[in-house]
């Protein structure tokens, strides 16, 4: 009986009645640190295409030619707002939430290189890849026909009846070898690793 009286008195308190009828949750605000769609900061884009290469969603970003230079464009129906393009851009062309501040504070960056792989079961040792490679041509102009080379500085050459990759780090990722290969034996893969600057020194 006493508890009923208590509850009736509690529910008749003006403050309780006001709260009960007019309570509202917090307004619909987007917090400042939310990773929205990447926006342009005004820095000049050099069309290195790092953003397009790291983007995990198909057709989400494209670097387009404008009247005076290049400009990345984000397509909202495709972008998943992961912010990798913001992090990957070396010029800081894009910004989203606090990603740029955090990468600057932590000194993180993406380090990328090209990995070449030859499937020996598919490869028929024609040497097309070694001959067509523009970097190989630059280093050893004598390289022709069979793909053999006397130079040790070339990216790859036919050696002992098979393609041997010597200097993977010189690859520029143009994929000419991949398009020239008749058997799809050689594959160029872009590898990306997150690194922290200053970590190697300590």
């Amino acid at each position: 009986m006493r508890s009923i009286v208590y509850y009736v008195r509690e529910f008749l308190r003006p403050e309780w009645i006001r709260k009960f009828f007019f309570a509202k949750t917090a307004p619909l605000e987007t917090p400042s640190y939310f990773k929205g769609y990447p926006a342009l900061t005004g820095n000049e884009c050099t069309a290195c295409l790092s953003c397009m290469m790291i983007c995990p969603a198909p057709n989400a970003i494209a670097v387009l030619r404008t009247r005076d230079g290049w400009e990345p464009e984000i397509y909202p129906g495709h972008c998943i707002r992961c912010g990798l393009c913001v992090e990957a851009c070396p010029e800081g062309v894009l910004s989203s939430g606090r990603i740029l501040d955090v990468t600057r504070r932590d000194g993180t960056a993406f380090w990328s290189w090209y990995h070449l792989q030859v499937d020996d079961n598919l490869c028929m040792r024609c040497g097309n890849c070694c001959v067509s490679c523009p970097v190989n041509r630059e280093i050893d102009p004598q390289l022709a026909g069979s793909g053999t080379s006397a130079s040790d500085e070339v990216i790859m050459r036919v050696e002992g009846g098979r393609v041997r990759i010597l200097h993977e780090e010189k690859c520029t990722g143009c994929k000419t070898c991949e398009t020239q290969c008749p058997n799809r034996a050689i594959r160029v893969a872009r590898m990306v690793e997150g690194v922290q600057i200053g970590e190697a020194e300590t």
Binding site: G77, H78, I80
Partner: peptide, 12 residues
């Protein structure tokens, strides 16, 4: 979401 609009990561 992106999926009904474009297929998002499944549009491969």
């Amino acid at each position: 979401g992106n999926c009904p609009i474009s297929g998002c990561v499944y549009a491969r």
